[in-house]
Nucleic acid binder design. Sequence first.
DNA 1: CTCGATGGGTTTTTT
DNA 2: ACCCATCGAG
Length: 698
Amino acid sequence: MDPLRHDTSSQSVKDTSFEVEDVYEDDELTLQQSNGFAEADVFSLQEQQPTSRDDTKVAVDQKAPHRSSSPTHRLRLSLNERQLRAVTFPLQSQLQILAGPGTGKTKTLISRVIFLLSQGVHPSNIIVTTFTVKAANEMRERIAAMVGPSVASRLVLGTFHSIARRYLIKYGYLIGLPTGFQIADETDALHFIQSVMKEVDPESDKNDCRHARNAISNMKSRAIQPSSLSALEYTTQEMMQVYSLYQGKLAEANFLDFDDLLLKCMELLRTNPLVVSNIQAVLVDEFQDTNVVQYQLMKLFAARRSNITIVGDPDQSIYAFRAAESTNLMRMRQDFQDTSVVSLEENYRSSGHILNAALAVIQQDTERIQKTVLPNHDEGHMPVFFPARNPYIEARHIVKEIQRLIDLSCGMLKPHDFAILVRSARLTRPIESELTKAGIDYRIVGGFRFWEREEIKLLVNYLVVVKSRRSPALLDIINSPRRGIGSVMQAALLNHANAYQVPIWDAIQRAIDGQVRVNAKVRSSLKQFVDIITEAERLVQDSSRETPLADALDYLITALDYKEALRKDRGDTWAARWENVTDLKEHIRYFCATAPDPELPDIDGVEGTKAADDVLSRFLATVNLAPSEAESSAFDPTMVLTISTIHGSKGLEWPVVFIPGVYEGSIPHALSLAKEVDLAEERRLLYVAMTRAKGENI
DNA sequence: CTCGATGGGTTTTTT
DNA sequence: ACCCATCGAG
């Protein structure tokens, strides 16, 4: 027998299961259950939502033949007692599922969704929020595997941000939001802040801007308005002024930043609750990481029936720096006095020794609420502590250990069974170079994200300019690749734009037309630049093409001679960068071929805006909200090891986990040493990292 | 004016 | 390793 495989049949838990068959056929939901939770074996319910008229496209699955003769979607879930109780908890109530690491949290949440469907709740009347886009996609896939893609695709499922965006696109006009708003990513936001900061404090540098950006985002996450006086307890008059001016700039350019998406959606639902009147159930994953605004949004989503299920674990709250408040758990119990709590205590993931070590870390927090953890595995191996003199020795040791374990297990452990989890993205460097020396492939999640890479951002910014002629993006690309438009020329253009109150794009046009004095060389460069953009725009809008967006990108890359530019400019890293460009091309082709986000259901009595959602805007929104890495599929996925920040590792697990840099200054981070609340978060961070280890009964 | 070379100072975590 | 400020060459 495979000694590394966890043998589930030895579980002491009572196995309970239910099956869903032909769940969705012609608007009828059928559930078949066995030895499960209800007396009736089979019952079916009419799709009963009068407020939803999302019936036009239902026929997709109709070609599925009848139950008796067809292969049916069949699902068997084995749940333990607590999980089952949570899954089948009565509707029209509030439920908190407190689930420690490795207790089957996601499985329980998914099963609850299936349960709700089986109870006749229409999928488009269920909102499920997840913490990342990746988690949302995985969840949709797993649900689709059980109930079919047409049901799964109708769930309103995504991050708070992406769901908010969908509501705002459709109903934003109700609160006077201009159509076609754009989402400001981190770079855009910083650009705006920068220009505001210059006005307020000409001495300010980039670091001050970052600081301001964080401070403002934190206020917005708490729903503090720029006009709020009480905010002065937190921050300075000056900062509030920056905040206020920043909001002005955003509005002027028709931008919403991440926080605005949530705030505007909150405003929308407060003033127009009808918009979510169809919603029968709201489920929130990673509840301990929601901020106040998200909590309010959750309540607003559920305003009609107050049917709320949340899953969370205060011990894994690691986003307080982003204004997440795990006290939302208590807040919810106060707001909804009948809230029930189910704790999942059985840990199916880690060995006993690992759990004990992890608990020893987190129990140092005296404020913490004690929790029962029942290891389902044997004690297993002791975790190893290796004191290293410096990062290079540490990296070498880790890589040697990985090679040793692979050899020792006779290839049973493959590189993809290993993860290296770091506190800060930059700590990966020595490790990367050791891995490269050893010839082990790795991928990095979090940290240097695909979409944040310079070459990717540049090309995306070209697309942004093609779409909107947006000034921040325009300034980013105007001299990249180098075309002789230096900072002085840029300042001149900017000046002209400001003086005449026109967009920078127009200033460029005027320079070409000779209304602004420039020398011939610059003029021809500008002309060339403008031509490239207009030609790309023509391609994007050419509806006779199959993949206009991908074609436009190809054109841009060729016209810019981007490969050559990289080779010339980027020394030894140009090849890797070019590879990223190839990945981007592939990603866009794939994107062109994929279906858009499902539309929100129409609500009787509320006019929705038909999403004028062309490929390019959809793509750009995806880039902003879902900076997931584009999986480079070139190599064997089992031969790839994972490097991730601890934050990025949440919800994942590996047989072997290394946590480098566990020393004061790294974990806990130097910037967190001053305050006990921050230290507590660092402890939880280490706890999360340690509990990623999937213990095996060897 | 632009560009490339040179040298010094640096970085938490992210939707 | 990357970002920035500075400076001299074209």
